[in-house]
Nucleic acid binder design. Structure first.
Length: 291
DNA sequence: TTGCAGGGGTCAA
DNA sequence: TTGACCCCTGCA
């Protein structure tokens, strides 16, 4: 498509930056005063915005960058029209899909998602973003874009080499020891549980749910987030308080256990459960469902 | 201004 | 199954 110096433009469907970056899946994208979203991923810093509702513009991106990284990161090879149709099995989901029509699930770096979602437990988004940003500033690689400085997320080996006092500087509180423990465990290599697992363990350099759960700071919800937001398992259905509320209010019409909700989602949406979760989550949070 | 409850979960008892 | 956890925010 159009290439003008370091600005790359491409036609897209089903992509609305606000929906993509504010649906709770990522912590390193912020809206600028001019409405563009600026973020760091894969050791690159870019700004993105839509032009004429069907053209995605990526600043500081070459054609090579786009094809080797951003196309996959933004999941542009997937037909979200098909996804929406598949999950819209009732009026509730039809409404949620209409509301979050521009959501796409980003394929984020596995280790970055893993550490970021450890930080997310019992925590609020602005604070999670601050902790992730601080970790990157202190221990990531500097990325220059003109006169602007950005920082990549630190590697697992770097995090593993740090003392707990070093990690405490990101002010993630009691989660810092989880980060430290888990980074150390991962830097030792792939856990045995993952090698034995035959169920979900088909992705390279990643871990399945069974291998994630023993890691410090990773429970069922965080594990599901890691699998979904790294593009490892789209049938994951992370159930946090918001999703629980919306499921109870709109589907169950009563209180329901996490186990019940997970079973329902698996049966009802199958391999697309993760996409359904994201539409519901965004719909529930933006509309205060169940508050 | 100060004080306190509670938060997009996990861990340990 | 339940309370503690670090720290920040909102609100009285």
């Amino acid at each position: 498509m159009n290439i003008n110096s370091n600005i790359y433009k491409t036609k897209v469907k089903d992509f609305i930056p606000k929906h993509v970056f504010e649906c709770g899946q990522c912590f390193r994208w912020t809206m600028q005063d001019d409405g563009k979203y600026t973020g760091v991923a894969g050791g690159r810093a870019v700004s993105v915005y839509m032009e004429n509702e069907d053209t995605l513009v990526i600043e500081n991106c070459t054609e090579e960058d786009f094809h080797s990284f951003w196309h996959d990161y933004f999941d542009l090879g997937r037909d979200y029209g098909e996804i929406k149709e598949a999950v819209s099995k009732d009026d509730i989901m039809k409404e949620a899909v209409r509301f979050g029509s521009g959501i796409r699930l980003l394929k984020q770096d596995f280790n970055e998602v893993l550490i970021s979602f450890i930080i997310s437990s019992n925590n609020r988004i602005p604070r999670i973003m601050k902790s992730v940003e601080t970790l990157s500033k202190l221990y990531g690689e500097k990325i220059l874009w003109g006169s602007r400085e950005f920082f990549s997320f630190p590697t697992i080996n770097t995090l593993a080499s740090l003392s707990l006092e070093d990690i405490n500087l990101c002010r993630a509180g009691f989660r810092c020891k989880y980060i430290s423990n888990t980074a150390k465990a991962l830097s030792m290599g792939r856990p045995d549980t993952c090698k034995e697992c035959t169920l979900d363990c088909h992705f390279e350099n990643k871990l399945c749910r069974k291998a994630l759960l023993p890691l410090s700071g990773i429970g069922p919800k965080v594990a599901d987030c890691i699998l979904l937001f790294s593009g490892s398992d789209y049938s994951s259905f992370p159930t946090d308080v918001w999703v629980k509320r919306v499921m109870e209010e709109l589907y169950f019409k009563r209180e329901a256990s996490l186990k019940e909700i997970a079973a329902f989602a698996r049966d009802y949406w199958g391999e697309y459960a993760g996409f359904a979760q994201q539409y519901l989550f965004y719909y529930a949070r933006e509309n205060g469902i169940g508050v």
